[in-house]
Write a protein that binds this DNA or RNA. Structure first.
Length: 247
DNA sequence: AAAACCTCCAACCGCCAAGCG
DNA sequence: TCGCTTGGCGGTTGGAGGTTT
């Protein structure tokens, strides 16, 4: 079986026709999302499963928001990107109606160059008054039942207590055990933490500097990654530590 | 008017992790 | 434990349409 949709010469590629869209839409409406390997057969489409899935997710799915991003969306996107990096699906998950592809495209065409310019402007000016600290790059990228989320926490993790040094209103404490890690409650807690973190971070930045790319925000230390790459995580260390724990 | 250049975004590609037998 | 299949992700590309020369 092909992983890359390119073993069969008869499979169609390129732009989708209105007829193909209709067939795919009808199929997903009848059978539901998922089982993408069956979709081409069920829909009578000469497309590979990946192509069908992508077309549905990025274009045909109901409630997809079309048109340009408004200021609030861009603002949120910038903040989320600072926190999450190029994790487009996670960012899109917090922008209702937007797909990961939309977010990625918008970032690459509008924001990447702007951000680059901002950084260069910073570099040209004062040679960064920002404190340079070392941070371990958050990884891996997915949360799963089998994944060790806390490589720096001992494997014998029955009720390891992990706390952040941040003592504001956010509850940063997690009791970690294998059952907890795999439970929906744990995922809820992560989502809850992100909710609060974004709200909190948003207030903090608004209070201090208003809307900007965050690069010049007072009180936010720049962070240099251990791999030497330029970091997008110019955040207070408390959040960095927590994100490292979360991912 | 048309050729050259630029921008944007839909779609493809390659890779990875989970699930299953 | 291993190999295969599937779903999902981020990076990249190609072409359509717009703008400039």
């Amino acid at each position: 079986m092909s992983q890359n949709c390119n073993t069969s010469l008869v499979l169609r590629k390129g732009a989708w026709t209105a007829e193909e869209d209709m067939l795919l839409k009808n199929c997903v409406e009848n059978f539901g999302e998922g089982k993408w390997h069956l979709v081409p057969l069920r829909a009578g489409l000469n497309r590979c499963r990946k192509s069908c899935r992508l077309r549905w997710l990025n274009y045909l799915r109901p409630n997809i928001k079309r048109g340009g991003f408004d200021k609030d969306e861009v603002d949120l996107m910038l903040r989320l990107h600072k926190l999450l990096g190029n994790r487009w699906s996670l960012i899109a998950g917090r922008l209702p109606g937007r797909t990961a592809n939309d977010v990625k495209n918008y970032w690459n065409t509008h924001l990447r160059s702007r951000l680059k310019q901002e950084k260069e402007k910073l570099k040209d000016g004062e040679q960064s008054e920002h404190t340079m600290v070392t941070v371990i790059k958050p990884q891996p990228h997915t949360i799963s039942k089998t994944l060790n989320l806390y490589p720096h926490v001992t494997p014998n993790y029955t009720h390891n207590l992990i706390t952040s040094s941040n003592n504001d209103s956010i509850d940063n404490t997690f009791n970690i055990s294998p059952n907890v890690v795999s439970s929906p409650t744990f995922v809820d807690k992560i989502n809850g933490y992100l909710e609060e973190l974004f709200d909190n971070q948003e207030k903090k930045i608004d209070d201090e500097v208003g809307w900007s790319f965050g690069l010049e925000a007072e009180g936010l230390d720049s962070v240099k990654q251990v791999d030497g790459q330029n970091s997008v995580f110019d955040l207070p260390m408390d959040e960095i530590v927590m994100l490292d724990l979360l991912y």
